[in-house]
């Protein structure tokens, strides 16, 4: 007995939509970043699972996962820098209040 591919895809989809709900529902900017990371990770799981199933010997899907790592790192670095920068001007991390500080 082994785990079918669909199970991995299901876990990936559930995690993706959990992250999605987090992005929509939370108002703390740092938590929104975390939820974006969760979504990226869910995509990674699907990529690796498909790659192991359908990829030939060259692991194309896993290569995309590595590039997702790069993008995730860059995104968190810049995202947090923006949050910190906004926070410097006005000590607020709630995304619905950041729009108040124009200019």
């Amino acid at each position: 007995m082994t785990v079918p591919l669909g199970a991995y895809i299901a876990v990936s989809a559930v995690l993706f939509f959990t992250g999605c709900a987090g992005v929509l529902v939370r108002r703390n900017a740092v938590v929104i970043l975390m939820c974006v990371e969760l979504m990226l990770n869910a995509a990674n799981l699907a990529l690796v699972a498909f790659s192991r199933k359908y990829g030939s010997i060259d692991e194309r899907g896993s290569v995309f996962v590595i590039f997702v790592f790069v993008i995730a790192a860059a995104e968190v670095a810049v995202g947090l820098a923006i949050i910190l920068s906004a926070y410097r001007n006005r000590p607020v991390v709630d995304v619905d209040e950041i729009h108040q500080m124009k200019g």
Binding site: L5, G6, S12, R52
Partner: peptide, 11 residues
């Protein structure tokens, strides 16, 4: 997603 990808396990 769950229903469409049955079949052989990953390697």
């Amino acid at each position: 997603a769950t229903l469409s990808f049955t079949g052989a396990p990953p390697r």
